[in-house]
Design a protein around this nucleic acid. Structure first.
Lengths: 107, 107
DNA sequence: AGTTATTATCGTAATATTGCAATATATAAA
DNA sequence: TTTATATATTGCAATATTACGATAATAACT
């Protein structure tokens, strides 16, 4: 049905899945990589850098903002998007503990 | 259009996104957690454990198999699913290097 | 106020994903 | 060989995601 039965899973599983879903798109990975490479706060040069239309980029940025992974500061006409380091590390930690605690013990 | 423009992204970005997409579902997270908890190779007790229909679980297992994250060994009537540790660690490494190399330097 | 530049939102088309009933396949047991 | 059990596949309905044109909103400049 295209709808995920979140009710039957626990909070941790749903949280992890939600975060991974946001990261699971090459455009959003590219956006994060691009933002991180910039010396200064850079705005929608992202549109020029990545070959997607402006509304599409804006939508991807919104999804990254929704989970608080990036924040956008308005600077005149432009908006400056930055990675939220605190959240970034929190997610890194979450993922790492998932990988560490999950390991095969058969076959 | 529901279709991702993979052509405009590099191989690494697409690979990472593909892997994350597979992991980005609570059922598949739950399946991996469940398999890892079992002492022996356990098969579709997964269906009983997780509250989804057998075809649905079978489909999720297939997706995990597609990226070689788990392997299924036939044991009589049953199939024994195990985490592929080599791939597991490879993905962990891939994710970790993404997180380490991507960090904010503005705002 | 009018113009221009930047970003966000809306509406919509195309495609993907999720979930399941029905069915097929395979193996073991009777 | 029939029956029962375990798993895979098919087909389909419901919903989600991706992408973009059109348009709105905002802000700087004239």
């Amino acid at each position: 049905m295209g709808i995920t039965k979140t009710q039957i899973f626990n909070e941790k599983q749903n949280k992890l899945a939600t975060i991974l879903k946001v990261l699971a798109h090459p455009a959003r990975i590219a956006i994060l990589e691009y933002i991180s490479k910039q010396k200064a706060c850079i705005c929608n040069d992202i549109v020029a850098e990545i070959g997607l239309a402006q509304p599409t980029i804006s939508q991807h940025l919104k999804e990254l903002k929704n989970i608080d992974l990036i924040s956008g500061e308005i600077e005149g006409k432009k908006v400056c998007y930055c990675i939220n380091l605190k959240k970034w590390k929190e997610i890194q930690q979450l993922l790492n503990s998932f990988f560490v605690s999950t390991h095969s013990n058969c076959c």
